[in-house]
């Protein structure tokens, strides 16, 4: 029933692999994997709107950045624990998502894209100008606090411990997002993408439903933002600017919004290729832009959609061969 072909076995294998990964790769590469995981959450939260909901947003960085600032300020000023800080970052993202959502989910298509962009810019300008709180363009630096579990103190400054922390948050977040697609609310999101009017005429309050989805997307974007800021031990306006908003759009689109794990593929591929290519190909961004345009033109469902259609054709061919 679900379009992606992942099975439980495959998921268990991937998680096991992630658990032993620190034994297999260097610390530098491990940091890269942490980045991939954080952006995977961000891209998946975006895909609740884009792929599953059929809404093109140019303002998802607002929730990512708002979550990041909230996490950093709470940890620095109130000395809350890291898990609580990230959780509250998520709630801040949800709060902002709900507040903006009241207005944006009334709109569709280009108007929706423009209003999300306007809100993103408003939040960005606020972060830039409200120096006393946000530090303006200089941002806020802080120290990732250690984690206290019972009587144990876990040093999160050590890459290995931090990696496992991010892994737990990521598996939990992605698990939630995946589970959501299998529930009535997740299916309703698809219904509204396919035909919002029809959904209304069979008794769904599509406005409230869209608002709920938008709020949840804000929550997970906030979680990703809180994680990203904790990772870099720093937050600045680049967490919330238009480039961040279009980055997540590019990741999601290139990976493919039509399958659940497409955005994860996009987030990982862009992070990895960016790291590999940027060292010897100065203008890597041109390749990324070119890839994006090629996919828009010839594979509107991104890399995962391309893979699926090739595989389908392959299967059909195989079936044809065995028949003859």
């Amino acid at each position: 029933m679900h379009r992606s072909r992942f099975t439980w076995l495959q998921i268990v294998v991937v998680i096991l692999l992630l658990l032993v990964l620190p034994k297999l790769i260097s610390e530098y590469r491990l940091n890269l994997v942490i980045t991939m995981m954080i952006y995977s959450i961000f891209a998946l939260s975006y895909n609740m709107l884009f792929g599953q909901g059929g809404l093109l947003s140019f303002g998802h960085a607002a929730y990512f950045g708002f979550g990041a600032y909230t996490t950093v300020i709470l940890i620095k000023q109130l000395e809350v624990s890291l898990p609580l800080g990230i959780m509250l970052g998520g709630l801040a993202g949800a709060f902002l998502g709900c507040a903006f959502g009241v207005f944006v989910v009334r709109l569709r298509g280009v108007a929706f894209a423009l209003l999300t962009l306007a809100f993103n810019q408003l939040i960005y300008v606020t972060a830039e100008k409200w120096r006393s709180v946000t530090g303006g363009e200089d941002g806020i630096a802080f120290m990732r606090p250690n984690l206290f579990l019972g009587g144990w103190e876990i040093d999160l400054w050590a890459t290995l411990n931090w990696y496992y922390f991010v892994l737990i948050v990521t598996v939990f977040s992605i698990g939630c997002l995946w589970y959501l697609t299998l529930t009535p609310l997740g299916r309703l999101n698809l219904c509204m993408r396919e035909n919002e009017e029809r959904a209304r005429f069979i008794g769904y309050n599509t406005y409230a439903s869209r608002l709920l989805i938008y709020t949840l997307a804000g929550f997970f974007a906030g979680i990703a933002g809180g994680l990203a800021a904790s990772f870099q031990e720093f937050v600045t306006t680049t967490f919330i600017n238009l480039d961040k908003a279009t980055d997540v759009l590019m990741m999601t689109f290139i990976g493919g919004g039509g399958t659940f794990f497409g955005p994860v593929i996009g987030a990982c591929a862009l992070t990895l290729i960016n790291d590999l290519l940027s060292s010897w190909l100065e203008r890597w961004a041109i390749v990324q832009g070119g890839l994006f345009i090629l996919l828009v033109l010839y594979a509107p469902n991104g890399l995962s959609g391309l893979y699926m259609s090739i595989r389908e054709r392959w299967d059909a061919q195989k079936r044809g061969n065995t028949r003859s």
């Binding site: 529930t183 609310l185 698809l190 396919e194 035909n195 029809r198 069979i202 769904y204 709920l212």
Partner: peptide, 27 residues
């Protein structure tokens, strides 16, 4: 006026959910 990108089964099921008041459930 149907949900073209979903299966026939899901088209009908979305209406059944609504009838039963199971709209936002994620239990």
């Amino acid at each position: 006026n149907i949900f073209p990108g979903m299966t026939v089964f899901e088209n009908i099921r979305s209406a059944i959910f609504s009838k039963k008041g199971i709209r936002w459930s994620f239990r």
